[in-house]
């Protein structure tokens, strides 16, 4: 391999790393201004994200949805689309999983979680399809439609959860609990951390994503449409069809977030359970550069960051929840600014 080709190959990785380091530097500088030792804050982040099986478990618990939303956004990037609707897609996916668990309470164990997962995927996929169809057939820009569909999803999920399946035993805005047969296996090595087989599902989706992109005709078609719609059409690919398909797959992946949350953790759909998984997924996809290993690493990074910054409130005197959110935001900003720049350059 020549020097030039090695550069081509490792340059994106280097840039991704640099953007992460720059973000961390900016965030830690803020904590320094607030009166904490940046080194100390950094060590706390590392320790509370990976310090014990339990801490690692919490990190992986947050990584699971981020991996799925990261893949959701990434698959759209490959097809030249910007999916800002993962938040709405995952909300409806989780709702669908919970409703399945309430309505079909009689289903036996192995079938029950599979049915709920299928419902989560299907509902998220349908929500993605709406934006994809509007883009391909009516020319409505997916950035606008997916943002708007997030609001519709929020309203719709409130209505279904609170008027059709409200939990009579709680004042929290949530649905009734799903039947026990729907619950999936908890990974006991992580102790009390709510890590379930949903993590394995997410990793499997990541592998499937890599296979789809690298080894299948469909993956080639997705990338072709993403690189140049016109060239793809000349090559005999129907760009509209590919765009719809990309949005359907993206919506389904985001919808699968409901499996871990509903069947592996809360046992019900809770309104507002997601701390913006769908939007952080954009940063995950940008940092991962469409590469499955990259997306997985980025998801782990942001999962660790969410867990770690959550504990800063505990471990330090001056870093409150709001300040730790600033730290998190600065890393996201740095990563997104770099990744987005690339994406814009490619499209223009």
């Amino acid at each position: 391999m020549s020097w030039g080709r090695a550069m081509d190959r490792w340059m994106p990785v280097l840039r991704a790393l640099l953007s992460v380091i720059a973000g961390f530097a900016a965030g830690l500088a803020v904590t320094w201004v607030a009166g904490e030792s940046p080194w100390n804050v950094f060590m706390i982040l590392i320790r509370s994200a990976f310090g014990s099986w339990y801490d690692l478990g919490m990190t992986l618990f947050y990584t699971t949805p981020l991996l799925l939303t990261g893949l959701s956004v990434a698959i759209c990037f490959q097809a030249g689309l910007f999916n800002i609707g993962a938040e709405g897609q995952l909300t409806l996916g989780a709702l669908a999983a919970a409703v399945t668990g309430v309505v079909l309470a009689g289903l036996p164990w192995p079938l029950a979680p599979v049915a709920a997962a299928a419902a989560a995927f299907g509902t998220g996929a349908f929500w993605g399809w709406i934006a994809g169809w509007l883009r391909a057939r009516r020319g409505s820009h997916e950035v606008i439609t997916t943002i708007m569909l997030n609001f519709v999803a929020a309203g719709l999920s409130s209505y279904v959860a609170l008027y059709l399946f409200p939990n009579p035993d709680s004042q929290n805005p949530e649905t009734r609990p799903v039947a026990k047969s729907f619950l999936i296996q908890h990974l006991s090595v992580f102790g009390d951390a709510p890590v379930s087989t949903a993590l394995i599902l997410a990793v499997a989706m990541c592998v499937a994503y890599g296979f789809l992109m690298r080894r299948t005709v469909l993956g080639f078609e997705l990338r072709s449409v993403g690189q140049s719609e016109r060239a793809a059409r000349v090559a005999g690919i129907d760009p509209g069809k590919i765009q719809i398909l990309a949005m359907v797959l993206a919506g389904g992946l985001a919808g699968l977030v409901g499996v871990g949350e509903v069947l592996g953790n809360a046992e019900k759909f809770k309104l507002g359970f997601s701390p913006q998984y769908g939007f952080v997924g954009i940063a995950v996809a940008l940092l991962g550069r469409g590469n499955p290993v990259g997306v997985a690493a980025a998801a782990l990074l942001f999962g660790a960051l969410h867990k770690g910054t959550g504990d800063l409130d505990f471990e330090t005197e001056n870093v409150t929840r709001d300040l730790s959110m600033i730290l998190q935001a600065l890393v996201i900003l740095s990563v997104s600014a770099d990744g987005l720049w690339d994406w814009v350059k490619r499209r223009v």
Partner: peptide
């Protein structure tokens, strides 16, 4: 005294446990 604020609904349990 230590006062912490939850970031999301899934954060209550870990905070109490810590």
């Amino acid at each position: 005294l230590k006062v912490v604020e939850a970031t999301d609904t899934n954060a209550f349990e870990p905070l109490l446990r810590t």
